[in-house]
Amino acid sequence: IRCIGVSNRDFVEGMSGGTWVDVVLEHGGCVTVMAQDKPTVDIELVTTTVSNMAEVRSYCYEASISDMASDSRCPTQGEAYLDKQSDTQYVCKRTLVDRGWGNGCGLFGKGSLVTCAKFTCSKKMTGKSIQPENLEYRIMLSVHGSQHSGMIVNDTGYETDENRAKVEVTPNSPRAEATLGGFGSLGLDCEPRTGLDFSDLYYLTMNNKHWLVHKEWFHDIPLPWHAGADTGTPHWNNKEALVEFKDAHAKRQTVVVLGSQEGAVHTALAGALEAEMDGAKGKLFSGHLKCRLKMDKLRLKGVSYSLCTAAFTFTKVPAETLHGTVTVEVQYAGTDGPCKIPVQMAVDMQTLTPVGRLITANPVITESTENSKMMLELDPPFGDSYIVIGVGDKKITHHWHRSGSTIGKAFEATVRGAKRMAVLGDTAWDFGSVGGVFNSLGKGIHQIFGAAFKSLFGGMSWFSQILIGTLLVWLGLNTKNGSISLTCLALGGVMIFLSTAVSA
Rank of each mutant, 00 (worst) to 15 (best):
residue 327 T to E: 04
residue 10 D to M: 08
residue 129 S to F: 05
residue 217 W to S: 06
residue 116 C to R: 08
residue 107 L to Q: 04
residue 441 L to T: 02
residue 483 S to R: 15
residue 41 V to A: 08
residue 456 L to A: 03
residue 463 F to L: 15
residue 202 Y to T: 14
residue 33 V to S: 02
residue 5 G to I: 02
residue 306 S to I: 01
residue 255 V to L: 14
residue 3 C to Q: 06
residue 373 K to N: 14
residue 105 C to D: 07
residue 346 A to F: 12
residue 196 L to Q: 01
residue 19 T to G: 04
residue 260 S to K: 08
residue 65 I to P: 03
residue 430 D to E: 08
residue 278 D to P: 00
residue 238 N to D: 15
residue 101 W to S: 03
residue 190 C to I: 06
residue 390 G to F: 06
residue 310 A to M: 15
residue 327 T to H: 06
residue 493 G to C: 12
residue 307 L to M: 15
residue 415 V to T: 06
residue 304 S to C: 00
residue 85 Q to P: 00
residue 89 Q to V: 06
residue 457 F to C: 11
residue 350 Q to R: 15
residue 247 D to V: 05
residue 84 K to C: 08
residue 84 K to V: 11
residue 15 M to R: 03
residue 158 Y to C: 13
residue 262 E to I: 10
residue 26 E to K: 13
residue 497 F to Q: 12
residue 183 F to T: 05
residue 246 K to Y: 03
residue 33 V to K: 04
residue 386 Y to G: 00
residue 440 S to W: 11
residue 195 G to T: 09
residue 293 L to K: 04
residue 18 G to S: 00
residue 48 T to G: 03
residue 249 H to P: 04
residue 389 I to P: 10
residue 332 Y to S: 02
residue 10 D to H: 06
residue 347 V to W: 13
residue 481 N to G: 11
residue 412 E to P: 07
residue 174 P to A: 06
residue 311 A to M: 12
residue 462 W to N: 06
residue 88 T to E: 13
residue 78 G to D: 09
residue 8 N to M: 10
residue 493 G to A: 15
residue 416 R to Y: 10
residue 25 L to D: 07
residue 261 Q to K: 04
residue 28 G to I: 00
residue 374 M to T: 14
residue 105 C to P: 04
residue 233 T to Q: 01
residue 185 S to H: 08
residue 451 A to T: 14
residue 322 L to P: 12
residue 87 D to R: 03
residue 230 D to S: 14
residue 402 R to T: 08
residue 228 G to H: 10
residue 336 D to T: 13
residue 225 W to A: 07
residue 81 Y to P: 02
residue 62 E to I: 10
residue 379 D to A: 04
residue 163 N to H: 14
residue 356 G to R: 10
residue 290 K to F: 05
residue 149 S to Q: 14
residue 159 E to F: 03
residue 155 D to M: 09
residue 52 N to K: 02
residue 148 H to S: 06
residue 236 W to I: 04
residue 441 L to G: 01
residue 123 K to G: 04
residue 297 K to I: 07
residue 5 G to E: 12
residue 82 L to K: 08
residue 52 N to H: 14
residue 79 E to S: 09
residue 318 P to H: 04
residue 175 R to T: 05
residue 504 A to T: 13
residue 307 L to Y: 09
residue 420 R to T: 09
residue 375 M to P: 00
residue 71 D to E: 15
residue 157 G to K: 13
residue 488 C to L: 15
residue 467 L to Q: 03
residue 226 H to F: 03
residue 93 K to H: 11
residue 264 A to T: 11
residue 396 I to G: 00
residue 481 N to I: 09
residue 239 K to A: 05
residue 105 C to W: 13
residue 387 I to V: 15
residue 260 S to L: 07
residue 117 A to F: 03
residue 400 W to N: 11
residue 49 T to N: 03
residue 234 P to Q: 13
residue 268 A to V: 08
residue 494 V to F: 13
residue 488 C to F: 12
residue 266 H to C: 13
residue 307 L to E: 12
residue 57 R to T: 04
residue 142 S to K: 01
residue 59 Y to I: 05
residue 163 N to T: 12
residue 75 P to L: 11
residue 11 F to D: 07
residue 407 I to F: 10
residue 168 E to F: 05
residue 117 A to N: 05
residue 288 H to L: 03
residue 198 F to L: 15
residue 230 D to E: 14
residue 287 G to N: 00
residue 329 E to L: 02
residue 250 A to R: 02
residue 16 S to C: 03
residue 417 G to H: 11
residue 54 A to E: 06
residue 446 H to T: 00
residue 14 G to K: 09
residue 9 R to A: 10
residue 500 T to K: 15
residue 11 F to T: 02
residue 358 L to D: 06
residue 26 E to L: 02
residue 25 L to M: 11
residue 106 G to M: 06
residue 445 I to E: 11
residue 6 V to L: 04
residue 437 V to H: 07
residue 87 D to N: 14
residue 250 A to E: 05
residue 121 C to A: 05
residue 271 G to Y: 11
residue 448 I to N: 10
residue 490 A to C: 11
residue 144 H to P: 02
residue 90 Y to W: 12
residue 121 C to G: 06
residue 411 F to V: 08
residue 126 T to A: 09
residue 457 F to M: 13
residue 326 V to D: 05
residue 312 F to H: 05
residue 133 E to R: 01
residue 264 A to Q: 11
residue 163 N to P: 13
residue 204 L to E: 09
residue 261 Q to L: 06
residue 448 I to W: 10
residue 189 D to R: 02
residue 58 S to Q: 12
residue 152 I to S: 15
residue 92 C to M: 12
residue 292 R to Y: 02
residue 242 L to F: 08
residue 131 Q to F: 09
residue 256 V to C: 03
residue 354 P to T: 14
residue 442 G to K: 10
residue 113 L to I: 14
residue 27 H to R: 09
residue 242 L to A: 02
residue 484 I to L: 15
residue 257 V to K: 05
residue 279 G to V: 01
residue 212 L to S: 12
residue 47 T to R: 13
residue 167 V to Q: 05
residue 293 L to I: 15
residue 391 V to L: 14
residue 223 L to P: 07
residue 205 T to C: 04
residue 163 N to K: 04
residue 142 S to D: 04
residue 286 S to L: 05
residue 266 H to M: 13
residue 470 T to F: 15
residue 366 T to D: 00
residue 299 R to N: 05
residue 248 A to P: 14
residue 204 L to R: 07
residue 119 F to L: 11
residue 235 H to G: 14
residue 452 A to L: 04
residue 425 G to Q: 07
residue 17 G to A: 04
residue 360 T to P: 07
residue 236 W to Q: 06
residue 10 D to K: 03
residue 238 N to F: 07
residue 213 V to S: 03
residue 252 R to G: 04
residue 432 G to R: 13
residue 455 S to N: 13
residue 232 G to V: 15
residue 300 L to P: 02
residue 304 S to F: 15
residue 365 I to A: 02
residue 402 R to Q: 05
residue 50 V to E: 04
residue 148 H to K: 04
residue 207 N to F: 02
residue 240 E to P: 00
residue 227 A to R: 11
residue 177 E to M: 11
residue 456 L to E: 10
residue 219 H to P: 00
residue 219 H to L: 15
residue 407 I to Y: 08
residue 334 G to W: 03
residue 377 E to W: 06
residue 197 D to K: 07
residue 129 S to R: 02
residue 444 G to K: 13
residue 149 S to H: 09
residue 475 L to F: 15
residue 491 L to F: 08
residue 141 L to F: 09
residue 370 E to S: 13
residue 373 K to Y: 07
residue 261 Q to V: 11
residue 104 G to A: 10
residue 314 F to V: 01
residue 109 G to K: 06
